[in-house]
Every structure is written in C-alpha cells, then in structure tokens.
Amino acid sequence: MELKLILAGIGGQGVVFATKVLSQAAMGRGERVMASENHGMSQRGGSVMSHVKIGGSEAPLIRRGTADALVAFDRVEAMRSLPFVRAGGSVYVNSVNGLDPAVMARLTELGIGVFSVEADACARELGAPAVTNLVVLGFAAAHSGLGLSVDDLKNSPKRNHSYRQRGLRVRP
C-alpha cells in the first residue's frame, strides 16, 4: 500500500534531514521511496516542505487533498500545509496548543485527526534542542502515522548523522 507523507517546517529545522531519516528507514524495510526536497532560496528561513511517497509511485509531488499524513515541525507551517491532507488523514504537529480552533471543526468533519506534541520542550529536556524534528517524527511513528515503527526509524542509517548547527546555533 502506498503512503503519502508531507513534512513541513521552517528553513533550518531539518526538514530535508528528517526526509532522509524517514526515507532510509522505509528503504530498510524494503520499500520503494520517492521524495521531493526544497533547496536554494527556501533554505534561508523560508517555508520548507518535502513530499515523501513510500511504496510505489515515481511522481515526486503529492497532490493537495491526498496526503495520508502531515508531519509538521512548526505550527504555522502545519496550518499552511493542511490543504495537502486527505479526508481521514492525520496531522502530527509540534505545538503546545494544537491547531487554530478556526479549522478544527472542518478537520473533524473530514475525519482528520490532529495529534500535538510539545517537541521543542521535549528536545530541550533531552539537552538537544536541534532534534525537534526527530521528536515529531518519532511521535508520528509511535502513532502508526508513518507506516513505520519507532524501531524502523532507529534503524535508519541516517540516525547518527550530525546535525548541522552552524548559523542556527541553538541555546537551551
């Protein structure tokens, strides 16, 4: 079965890195992967989104309204990327207070579940504020939102990749 995932965040939050972790983990399970990354201008603090398809398709982009899950490292970027989520899909978001109440009724109507995690706080507790992205990714996996288990993610060869912090030094 094909799984379509959107990863969203801000330039510097490691969207591209999380895409690689996820893709490697899926490949570790013998799945075919096709993903699309943002580079260039979008990396200078702009919105960054990547599209990941696990299990078949060779088309790099996901059409609006067809993503099984949205994994967002930033609340505003989650809101911006919502149109990609299909009815019955899921949203995993780094947020202390879920999504804007204005959209919640419509999401419920469409059967879209919203799961928030205070990933910034979690990452700070771990003493590694830069791993917010991996906290949200792990959170989504634990909710079976990625078609991959937390162990699959742990087995990703990218797991020990050092996070590039220059220019984005994070202080607790």
Binding site: G11, R44, G46, R64, T66, P83, V103
Partner: peptide
C-alpha cells in the same frame, strides 16, 4: 476529479502570511 480543495478555502481564509526567505542571523 478527487476533491483537492476541501481544506484550501478555510486555510486561505486564515490569511497566513507567506514566510519569505531572509538573510541569516549574523
């Protein structure tokens, strides 16, 4: 064609400002 605009209208109504690329801190 499958509905790809189910959420577009409501998200548009929120008028989320585009996050434009900026020069890095420093």
């Amino acid at each position: 064609p499958p509905d790809d605009a189910a959420l577009s209208a409501i998200v548009q109504s929120l008028k989320i400002a585009p996050r434009r690329p900026r020069l890095c801190p420093g």
